[in-house]
Design a protein around this nucleic acid. Structure first.
Length: 570
RNA sequence: CGGGGCAUAGCGCAGCCUGGUUAGCGCGCCUGCCUUGGGAGCAGGAGGUCGCAGGUUCGAAUCCUGCUGCCCCGACCA
């Protein structure tokens, strides 16, 4: 295509609204424009990049045996009431009424709709397994949309849903998707990790997130440097190290700690380390207060707490809520004599003679011991993993790193098929619930993630498979007819050779064309200028590393076809 | 939802504290000349409900009140 005929409104200056590099470069390169918070228009170049990702996703999904469909974005509330999610989903679900006052919502995800299709259209075990997917705009009214395409309210997602006769089948479907995802992100040219993720109530090891490694990632992942263990931080199991044996149980004693409420100040006042203190935190588990015990220097991993308690949501209680539930001011809470549900981290269960709040203002208890001085409802792994913990798989050293979640595969089980009564007739004549899986890819986020991972001070450095164009031909000929004709013929020949070429035919000075070409991140640049007049060769430059080849026009075509072909095959 | 910040030309900003003619600057845009290998130069020009609504005042971009929008941080440690 011709630059002069494309809308590519590049910006010289950094728009004030943008913070992260992908957002800045997408705006500066004229790929996107914001309409309102978290909602963007994809301009021609932005859409081309999106389409590249979509095409790779489509090819790999089809190859894995999935079938493409397209479901409605507007969905009736009734369906969501069947699964109970109309209430549970919260304010992220955008609800509205149509002219007939029917309650509706914009689809943030499509389990309900697809399960409805399944129960209506899939009747026999002979119809299974089935995997249906779509690439579609989703709407989620995020608490805080940010970072451009990274966390938008409206975004493009590929979502797939598998239906199987039983768990074994579902696990095969899951594995197929897992493998397809690996191929997709590899083909996109991304540096990514598949990490274990929280699988909530379903349990088992059937939830993986695909994380693009980048500092701006909103997730933290844990990677082992000596085995293949990789997990989302919220999922990573903490290995309980054996407690030091032998310390005799001492007599519990109340001490005065006037005005000392924080772990730090209590420890300082008592002359102990935070690892000798146990803090008591009150959470609201689906609204019900629950006390959680944790070593003084540890942090709660809320996802683990949620799973241990078997609730949908946990939230730290406020000071007033804590007082209402316990009649104790925050800072002096403790497990002894507390009348709340009580769960403890496994580490605490192994401790002896620790210090806790006395449930009385300005007092703490020392030499407290679980079992002797108080009882608990449950013990489990509740704390956030740290780099000092060993790898749960091999005991090796762990590293924490940031990642951008671009994909998630998840075994759903029969939760949706049961609540929506979606069954098929099995070979034994019995009606059974579908065993489901769901698989998502943030298509628009992939573009942002790719840029987070591939850029330099001049602009984007697109991986070849995602680049809107793989070659840009700069016509620096000005009024020189020979050069203009050469640029035109090269443009034609490269296109005829099957490459996606952008011809910068604008009546602009060379400097500006170079700057724009760099900013747009097109992998290969061909410069037709006065060096050709001198030597009969044009300059072919690779965006990624600036490596330059001086080639004749004929050589240029074969060189680029070969290079780009090789990079697409990877 | 809590905290902080911002809102003046397409973009980036100044002016506001200390109210006073016609609201500025850079980039971009238009016209012409000139130039053509890293965001050129010269000349001329267009473009503004100063976010919205009230209020104070002889007079408001500027002071006050309310609202809206956007951005950032947080919504996990008692």
């Amino acid at each position: 295509m011709r630059y002069s005929q494309l809308l590519i409104p590049t910006l010289k200056e950094v728009p004030s609204e943008a913070e992260v590099v992908s957002h800045v470069l997408l705006l500066r390169g004229g790929f996107i424009r914001k309409l309102t918070a978290g909602i963007y228009t994809y301009l021609p170049l932005g859409l081309m990049a999106i389409r590249k990702v979509e095409q790779i996703v489509r090819e790999e999904m089809n190859r894995a045996g999935a079938q493409e469909v397209l479901m409605p974005m507007v969905q009736p509330a009734d369906l969501w009431m069947e699964t109970g999610r109309y209430k549970k989903y919260g304010p992220e679900l955008l609800r509205f009424h149509d002219r007939h006052e029917r309650e509706s919502c914009l689809g943030p995800t499509h389990e309900e709709v697809i399960t409805d299709i399944a129960r209506k259209e899939l009747h026999s075990y002979r119809d299974l397994p089935v995997n249906l997917y779509q690439i579609q705009t989703k709407f989620r009214d995020e608490i805080r949309p940010r970072f451009g395409l990274m966390r938008g309210r409206e975004f493009i997602m590929k979502d797939a849903y598998s239906f199987d006769v039983d768990d074994a089948g579902a696990e095969v479907s899951y594995r197929k998707m897992y493998d397809a995802y690996r191929r997709i992100f590899t083909r996109c040219g991304l540096d990514f990790r598949a990490v274990q993720a929280d699988s909530g109530a379903i349990g088992g090891n059937f939830s993986h997130e695909f994380m693009v490694l980048a500092k701006t990632g909103e997730d933290t992942i844990v990677i082992c440097d000596s085995c293949d263990f990789a997990a989302n931080k919220e999922k990573a199991a903490v290995v309980l190290r054996p407690a030091a044996e032998g310390e005799p149980l001492r007599v519990m004693a109340k001490v005065e700690t006037p005005g000392k409420r924080k772990v730090e100040t209590v420890c300082e006042f008592l002359g102990i380390g935070p690892e000798a203190l146990v803090k008591t935190m009150v959470y609201k588990a689906d609204g019900v207060p629950v006390a959680v015990l944790l070593r003084g220097d540890r942090e709660v991993e809320e996802v683990k707490l949620k799973n241990l308690l078997g609730v949908a949501d946990v939230e730290l209680a406020g000071e007033q809520e804590v007082f209402d539930a316990t009649r104790v001011p925050t800072g002096y809470l403790g497990p002894v004599g507390l009348s709340l549900r009580l769960v403890v981290d496994q580490e605490v269960a192994a401790m002896r003679n620790f210090t806790v709040g006395a449930n009385e203002k300005n007092h703490h208890l020392q030499n407290v011991n679980l079992g002797r001085d108080f009882q608990v409802e449950a013990v489990g792994d509740l704390r956030r993993i740290t780099v000092d913990d060993p790898c749960p798989q091999c005991g090796g050293r762990l590293a924490l790193t940031e990642g951008i979640e671009v994909g998630h595969v998840f075994k759903l089980g029969t939760g949706y098929s049961q609540s929506m009564n979606a069954t098929f007739q099995d070979s034994d004549g019995q009606g059974k619930h579908f065993v489901m899986g769901c698989y998502g890819i943030g298509v628009s986020r992939v573009v942002a993630a790719a840029i987070e991972q591939n850029h330099d001070e001049h602009g984007i450095v697109f991986p070849v498979p995602l680049a809107p164009f793989t070659v840009i031909v700069l016509n620096l000929g000005g009024k020189d007819e020979t050069l203009c004709e050469l640029a035109e013929s090269l443009y034609g020949k490269l296109q005829a050779a099957g490459l996606e070429v952008l011809l910068d035919d604008r009546d602009e000075r060379p400097g500006l064309k170079f700057k724009d070409a760099d900013l747009l991140g097109i992998p290969y640049r061909v410069t037709v200028g006065n060096s050709y007049t001198k030597s009969g060769k044009v300059e072919v430059r690779r965006r990624r590393d600036g490596v330059v080849e001086e080639l004749t026009p004929e050589e240029t075509v074969t060189f680029l076809v070969e290079r780009i072909g090789a990079e697409l095959k990877k």
